[in-house]
């Protein structure tokens, strides 16, 4: 029997099993990227070789056309177009989503009214219905409205899965900070615009950034709705990759595109770690 004091000291310490679990999960998460990177650098890599028999850089001098990364970075791969589309749609969706959700989140976060719980459930509902159901049902309407296969259509449809996250995050931000500071400012004679930009916004900014990051993340990673509504005309990184792997095989250019499609996420991960950690996505 260990003394209570030493037990209490251990409360924040990790035990060996937990250490093993963390390590195993890190390996499970990261290890599959190794063959992906190798594949992207391979020219011929057949079973049972652990490494390619011919690498891309050995073959590239002999090859009459760009191979692997040379192709990925050539205009023919459409990677640049897909990247611009992905980022452009992501940013537009994020801004739209913010404009729609910010006012609503203030109401949800700071006011009490009848039916508020039901309303919050309604906002979460798009997360709870299968994406395929939403996508196919909407495709019908969008074809009728001539929105299928257009940027506008894709951006609108991206709002459905992103709004719940944005609304949720912003609501919890408003809940957290109360109305005292605004009340003071109002007493001191600030007008509504001044209050919002000088008082409210700086206070809620970290939360707003977190919400925007989630929204951007969800939008850039969205495949199904882009694929259904974009009808193949709007190429984003996830749909470009899908076209490469839908056959159930991955060649060097496919692996290269998969790595490129991971880059925005990795950048976000590095630079935004602290914002994302403090806000739960679901609740």
């Amino acid at each position: 029997m260990i003394g209570t004091a030493s037990k209490l000291r251990d409360i924040k310490a990790i035990n060996p099993w937990q250490r093993l679990l963390v390590l195993a999960m890190a390996v499970f998460t990261i290890a599959p990227f190794a063959p992906l990177i190798i594949q992207s650098l391979a020219f011929r890599w057949a079973w049972p070789n652990i490494l390619p028999t011919v690498w891309w850089f050995e073959q590239r001098q002999r090859s009459p056309f760009p191979l692997a990364w040379d192709y990925v970075f050539s205009p023919s791969s459409r990677v640049v177009e897909a990247t611009i589309n992905t980022l452009g749609i992501g940013i537009t969706v994020t801004l739209l989503c913010l404009v729609i959700c910010l006012p609503a989140a203030r109401v949800l976060g700071q006011r009490t009214f009848r039916g508020k719980n039901q309303l919050e459930f309604l906002i979460a509902l798009p997360l709870l219905l299968p994406e395929a159901a939403i996508g196919i049902a909407l495709l019908m309407i969008f074809i009728a409205l001539d929105l299928a296969g257009t940027y506008v259509g894709v951006i609108i449809v991206h709002l459905i899965p992103t709004i719940p996250y944005m609304a949720r995050t912003l609501t919890s931000v408003y809940q957290g900070h109360g109305t005292d500071a605004e009340d003071h400012a109002r007493v001191l004679g600030a007008n509504r615009r001044q209050i919002f930009f000088r008082v409210t916004l700086p206070m809620i900014l970290p939360g707003v950034i977190a919400g925007c990051l989630f929204t951007f993340l969800v939008s850039t990673n969205l495949f199904l709705l882009t694929f259904f509504i974009g009808q193949g005309h709007i190429v984003t990184l996830p749909t470009l990759l899908f076209a490469k792997i839908s056959g159930g095989a991955l060649d060097a250019t496919g692996a290269g595109i998969a790595l490129i499609a991971s880059v925005p996420g990795v950048i976000l991960l590095i630079f935004t770690d602290r914002f994302i950690r403090n806000y739960p996505l679901a609740e």
Partner: peptide, 26 residues
């Protein structure tokens, strides 16, 4: 711990299609 939690969070940041690509090569 910061590094490990960031590593484990990586799949959250990438599309499902990347996950599928990883399954194919693995």
């Amino acid at each position: 711990s910061r590094l490990f939690s960031a590593l484990i969070r990586l799949p959250l940041m990438v599309p499902y299609t990347v996950g599928i690509a990883l399954a194919l090569v693995m």
